[in-house]
Simulated assay, not measured.
Amino acid sequence: MKIYFVYILKCSDGAYYTGFTSDLEKRYLEHKTGKHKESYTFSRTPISLEFYAEFTEPSIAINTEKQIKKWSKAKKEALINNEFEKLPNLSKKKFNSN
């Protein structure tokens, strides 16, 4: 059974990059060594792997990647830190009370 990964990297500028791959070790090495000059992480090294999740269905992994990419930095950090109880509140839109 093939395994697919959704991962979050932390870049040297503090930004997070979320990606999808079927070979996490190889893809991380590509990010780390700057193999792809067009990659978001190319000019933001060094990078560190902060989170990954495994999937057996590529479509679910891709949908999860797309979802996480839309999340705020705070929500990504809650996921990275296993603070799952914070995720619902971080999903709520903040409304101006004026």
Score class of each variant (00 low, 15 high):
Phe20Lys: 07
Gln67His: 11
Tyr7Gly: 04
Glu57Arg: 08
Arg44Met: 11
Ala53Gly: 08
Gly34Gln: 03
Lys2Ser: 12
Ile80Trp: 04
Glu54Leu: 14
Asn96Glu: 15
Gly34Phe: 00
Phe95Ile: 10
Phe55Pro: 05
Ile3Gly: 03
Glu50Ala: 03
Tyr52Ser: 08
Pro46Glu: 14
Glu85Asn: 01
Arg27Tyr: 06
His31Met: 02
Phe51Glu: 05
Ile3Asn: 09
Lys92Pro: 06
Ala78Arg: 01
Leu49Tyr: 06
Glu77Asp: 05
Leu87Gln: 05
Thr18Pro: 01
Ile3Leu: 12
Glu50Lys: 03
Thr21Lys: 06
His31Leu: 02
Trp71Phe: 09
Thr56Trp: 10
Lys73Ile: 13
Thr41Gly: 01
Phe55Ala: 07
Ser39Arg: 00
Thr41Pro: 03
Asp23Gly: 04
Ala78Asp: 01
Tyr52Trp: 12
Asp23Asn: 13
Thr41His: 04
Glu50Thr: 01
Cys11Glu: 09
Arg27Gln: 15
Tyr40Thr: 02
Lys92Glu: 15
Pro46Phe: 10
Phe84Leu: 10
Lys75Trp: 04
Pro88Met: 10
Met1Gln: 05
Tyr16His: 08
Phe5Gly: 09
Thr56His: 14
Lys76Phe: 10
Lys26Ser: 09
Ile68Asn: 08
Ser72Thr: 11
Ser48Val: 11
Lys69Glu: 10
Ile68Lys: 07
Ser43Cys: 07
Ala53Lys: 15
Ile8Ser: 01
Asn63Gln: 14
Tyr28His: 11
Glu65Gly: 05
Thr56Ala: 13
Ile8Phe: 06
Ile62Tyr: 08
Glu85Arg: 01
Thr33Leu: 14
Lys92Tyr: 13
Ala53Met: 14
Lys2Cys: 05
Glu30Arg: 00
Lys86Thr: 01
His31Lys: 02
Asn81Val: 02
Phe95Glu: 11
Lys92Ile: 13
Lys26Val: 09
Phe20Thr: 04
Ser72Leu: 09
Gly19Lys: 01
Lys73Cys: 09
Ala53Leu: 14
Ser39Cys: 04
Glu83Thr: 01
Met1Glu: 12
Lys70Phe: 04
Thr21Asn: 07
Ala74Tyr: 08
Lys26His: 11
Leu49Val: 03
Ala74Gln: 14
Phe42Tyr: 07
Leu24Tyr: 06
Glu38Lys: 00
Tyr17Glu: 09
Ile68Leu: 15
Ile68Tyr: 12
Ile3Ser: 14
Ala15Asp: 15
Glu50Ile: 00
Ser91Met: 11
Ser22Pro: 03
Lys73Trp: 13
Gly19Cys: 13
Lys66Ser: 12
Phe95Gly: 05
Lys75Arg: 13
